[in-house]
Design a protein around this nucleic acid. Sequence first.
DNA 1: CGGGGTCTTAACGGTGGCTTAACGAGACAT
DNA 2: ATGTCTCGTTAAGCCACCGTTAAGACCCCG
Lengths: 230, 230
Amino acid sequence: MASLVIIEDDLRVRTALTKALEQRGHVVMQADTAMGGLQLVLAHKPDVIVLDLGLPDLDGVELLRMLRPVSDAVVIVATARVSEEEIVRTLDAGADDYVTKPFSPDQLDARIRASLRRLGGVAGERTRDVVVGALRINARSRDVSLGDQKLELSRKEFDLLHYLARHEGQVISKKVLLAEVWHQPFFTTDKTVDVHVSWLRRKLGETADRPRYIHSVRGVGIKLLAPVDV
Amino acid sequence: MASLVIIEDDLRVRTALTKALEQRGHVVMQADTAMGGLQLVLAHKPDVIVLDLGLPDLDGVELLRMLRPVSDAVVIVATARVSEEEIVRTLDAGADDYVTKPFSPDQLDARIRASLRRLGGVAGERTRDVVVGALRINARSRDVSLGDQKLELSRKEFDLLHYLARHEGQVISKKVLLAEVWHQPFFTTDKTVDVHVSWLRRKLGETADRPRYIHSVRGVGIKLLAPVDV
DNA sequence: CGGGGTCTTAACGGTGGCTTAACGAGACAT
DNA sequence: ATGTCTCGTTAAGCCACCGTTAAGACCCCG
């Protein structure tokens, strides 16, 4: 059982989904526009958002970007668009799952339950603030400060740092990073991680041969640590 | 009773398996993609993973390689592929068991229970911290300290020491070490082990003729012990 | 439709780690 | 005593991995 918001402009699809999901024990709220959906989400803080792309007033990806900072909900994108590129862009924008129409209510329900279970043990993980040494990461506003200095990080840089910080001290393999941060372990290479790490280190004011926060463990992965020195 | 993750893209197979295994008292989580499966595993650290090959987003063997360093779960591969070569490749990549479809839920359950028995209730082998004498090994951060001194170990050195430490007091043959630490019992030679042991001893501050932690047992293998002297 | 920002990929240099080879020393059997 | 086998250690070469810069593609904004 979960509370969810469906944002979908096609009336027939919307009511059919609503009915099917209610039958399965969920509490369902509906919106037929992006703005209406946003209001519902803000007002009710649902567990799950089922989002159609191709809304009349706003691109779904746009809405995703607006949603992400204000909601911790699992976002499942349901759409007819099937291009590989589109899927990547959408997942990259923060969607948790992607279903292509047509799909059965059963499948959607399964994905909803899977998503919830996924978050079950670690609720709020995505919006958790983390402090490591002088490094302070605010997940909702997505800003980072080192000591009293604000850092300007790009999206991937932030996500990467945030993930490492949430697993402080643990060595994380690049494969896992690609899966967890990039959501795409297959068509991207480990090199991508290296480059972002390099940029992060520069912004953190450290170098690879004198690491303070970001430590490479050769052949294994990366870990983030509070610096031992002052 | 065990907690398990099923990674299988065919909805019908997946739900059937889930239902059957839940009836037998297991806690089952489902994923239909490699990515989703990885997330589930990371979040919930299940005891067993049932893995279908031929997933849509990533080859099962690839996923296995990603899974192995982050999870101690028993991996049971369930697939329609039957080629001898495929089986070898899969087991070699870290799978614990291999079932070919079609199979009955009873058979799968039996294998799950067998695997768990094999594991002997020793949870978290691969990510377990170990202390032997003054030697402290942190598996997740891959740090090793001897007394109050940090040791800088390479990957193989760490893996070797960690394995020996997890089997403190047991004599381990080089063949077993090559299989368990090197994952390649055939194309590497025992000599390789000798060399790594030698390096380890140097870093541990001991020599072969005055061993403190690492003891060779001629013709049999290696064992690690807490030193008897001060 | 340009211009800034961001991400990915390619290229290159450097080096660290792994394996193999070689040599020596004991241990064990004959 | 002698040859064989195992083990310890060092040195050498090769390969994989890492760090970094630059270039190109893409997106996003006015």
